[in-house]
């Protein structure tokens, strides 16, 4: 009896839907496709997922802290040696921590099919991709920047270098996320693309590493480091404008 009742209800519901909606009025019933709306939509979703799946935030951060704290143990506590190698250690650790987190950027979306749905959305792909990369930076890059000064104290970083360290991280970590996204997009269709991803992405990270550590070293000597910063900024704006399009194209190829 209950079964029957349920099915009649279902049919009633169905007729109701048929009555109040007609096909063909897409323009009227769909929202204005604004870039900002699409960006916020994907950003909010990715942050919600990250907050419920805290591994994504904690793993790279923990890796960063562990690597940096292991160096004084291995090299010895001499302040002079440590402060000499501090910029390199912090930046290499940040680089590897980002690389470690890259896989999550599109992998899970690819596995559960939401990537296909994004590619089929009427919104332009680059705006959705940009939102995902920004979310990735907020989840991995920002925590690194916040904890880096603390680790710099541990490594006796020269006092004059703190501003340079923060500025290079602030400009440099988004570049890592943007360039990394291109690599992930290219390898997302491959079952075990981890090694290939490192090979693809690490060479692209080297310019950032060179100029960032050079800026921090120059700052320690009390010299102006605006030149190095300008180059990192150029890398940032270059990748900000080009990477989302490259990622979009790469995703289309990967899901083909």
């Amino acid at each position: 009896m209950t079964l029957k009742a349920q099915s009649t209800q279902e049919t009633e519901n169905l007729t109701a839907t048929i009555d109040n909606s007609m096909i063909g009025d897409t323009a009227q019933s769909s929202q204005q496709l604004s870039y900002r709306h699409a960006f916020m939509l994907v950003l909010k979703r990715d942050l919600t997922i990250a907050m419920r799946h805290k591994d994504d935030i904690i793993n790279p951060l923990l890796f960063f802290v562990i690597v940096v704290t292991l160096f004084p143990l291995g090299i010895g506590p001499e302040a002079q040696t440590l402060s000499r190698i501090a910029p390199g250690i912090i930046w290499v650790a940040a680089l590897l921590a980002t690389l470690l987190s890259l896989d999550r950027l599109f992998k899970s979306d690819h596995l559960d099919g939401s990537l296909e749905q994004m590619l089929l959305s009427p919104h332009p792909i680059f705006i959705l991709v940009l939102a995902k990369i920004f979310a990735h930076w907020l989840i991995t890059g920002l925590p690194l920047i916040l904890i880096a000064p603390l680790l710099a104290v541990l490594l006796h970083l020269n006092e004059q270098s703190y501003t340079a360290l923060l500025l290079t991280l602030l400009l440099g970590t988004p570049v890592l996320s943007l360039l990394g996204a291109v690599g992930v997009a290219l390898t997302v269709g491959i079952k075990k693309g981890g090694v290939l991803l490192s090979l693809l992405v690490l060479p692209l990270y080297i310019p950032v590493l060179i100029f960032a550590t050079s800026a921090i070293d120059t700052a320690a000597l009390g010299l102006p480091y605006s030149g190095q910063l300008a180059i990192i900024a150029a890398l940032f704006f270059g990748s900000l404008t080009l990477a989302p399009f490259a990622v979009g194209a790469a995703l289309k190829v990967s899901t083909n």
């Binding site: 929202q31 496709l33 099919g113 919104h123």
Partner: peptide, 24 residues
């Protein structure tokens, strides 16, 4: 593949899927 995220609730999933395709 259904494109449903495990970390989100049923309602959030549906809301996102509809909004992604420009629907109210």
């Amino acid at each position: 593949l259904s494109g449903v995220k495990d970390e989100m609730t049923a309602e959030e999933n549906l809301d996102f899927n509809l909004a992604l395709h420009g629907n109210k």
